[in-house]
Design a protein around this nucleic acid. Structure first.
Lengths: 233, 233
DNA sequence: CGGGGCGTTGACCTATGTCAAGACCTGTGG
DNA sequence: CCACAGGTCTTGACATAGGTCAACGCCCCG
């Protein structure tokens, strides 16, 4: 396991500052897994038995209410820890994680957590920083939902995705996993209809190009102005 | 310092499981402070030099955008840690904390953090759990803002405040610090006008009683139904 | 080749924000 | 002790962003 994965995880930010031998120790209790597109890595409410590091692919973290309404909490890009319930004293996952594309992950049993954090403070610090960042991001989203118009929120969501996973194509920068209008709606607290209308409008103004589960941004700068509430011209 | 505060903090949840002598060690680097109503404990963006434990009173945690718009991130009740930036790897406060009433706090220099967490895992665990809870609450708020109507959000906000700090009076259960309509609006992403209309309506239906910066709930159960989107009768 | 998932667009409706005017407290200074 | 000023709350009238409902077109995959 260890030797095999060294190269894959060499540049994972969370392991920065670990020596090779330490890395081996960290990886010893880990196992690799692949998760097919649309399959769940873990489910909301399920017993938190393992925590994960996303090596490749992208995950959608989704929360569902009793009434079955969905909100997309965030997308996770390669290199991030996921399902780190124990870091925050939970024994159950607060959300579900679904593969947006085929993914490769490492996973550790929760039982490895105390040992890992105790022996590798740098790992612990990274994990807690991750939680902190998520708190910050979530808080930012509250502000956005409280104060910004739908158009700005949608523009922002698209820009975030592009920033996280943008890939250059002839059409501009494309979000490199499938995203539906409904997905964007679930990220911004609106409806697929409104998202559709906005994307159409932006497309006719030459800021984006989009199709079935595909969005590329051709004029990030102008879209950014929209996200900041420019009355437009 | 230590002896003096023992009784005050004896039942603070975050210190559960600490022996008396450990408690003394924890308190040694701490100092107490009082903060008058409406004064700030720390300011958004300021260097995070100390972290705090609220012993008595209530704090309002506020985030302000560049454009000067405000959102109330949360209220902190006595017994909670505040300003624990280092727990999440920040060196600057992400929000401001303002005393909602006269408050008493303990504070430690950030430099005490590594030592405290290293020596008292139970303290560390408590701190991280606090962060986790806040992440969870913030996430819940995102869901609420995304899916619920204003009426439900306001009902929920009022109920949360009542649950956190409710005090029985002849009018029902009263939020025991001053809250204006604007405050409620800032907690729910709406306007003081809408909040005022809602409170008036509820009052005429006998669910609440309210006045200048004062709200009491007389029929929590019915208000709960409202918060869950009952069409009402 | 057919069906289900996804997207587009129009028509309409309504929850809630905006604007405006005033009433009502409360604490402060004369 | 009174009166005034500033902050707070209320209420009406009105405007509109964006949700809801409905119908249809378009892929893509099996």
């Amino acid at each position: 396991m260890a030797k095999l994965n060294r190269s894959l995880i060499a540049d994972v930010e969370i392991f920065n500052g670990l020596q090779d031998e330490d890395l081996d120790t960290v990886l010893e209790p880990a196992s690799a897994l692949r998760v097919a597109k649309d399959a769940a890595v873990f489910e909301q409410g399920g017993a938190a038995e393992r925590f994960f590091l996303l090596l490749d692919g992208a995950l959608r973290v989704v929360q569902t209410t009793r009434e079955g309404q969905q909100v997309i909490a965030r997308y996770i890009a390669a290199g991030s820890l996921v399902g780190i319930a124990p870091a925050i004293g939970r024994d159950t996952y607060p959300a579900s994680a679904v593969a947006a594309v085929d993914c490769v992950l490492l996973s550790w049993p929760m039982s490895a957590w105390p040992d890992l954090t105790a022996r590798f403070p740098v790992f612990a610090a990274n994990a807690y920083r991750t939680v902190g960042q998520r708190l910050q991001e979530t808080q930012d989203r509250v502000i956005e939902l409280s104060l910004a118009q739908v158009e700005q929120r949608v523009a922002n969501a698209v820009l975030r995705l592009v920033r996280q996973t943008g890939r250059k194509t002839e059409d501009g920068i494309e979000i490199d996993f499938p995203v539906s209008r409904q997905d964007i709606a679930d990220m911004t607290g609106t409806t697929l209809h409104t998202v559709s209308r906005l994307l159409s409008a932006w497309e006719s103004q030459g800021m984006v190009r989009s199709g079935r589960k595909r969005i590329s941004v051709t004029d990030p700068h102008r879209l950014m102005l929209v996200s900041q509430g420019a009355k437009d011209a």
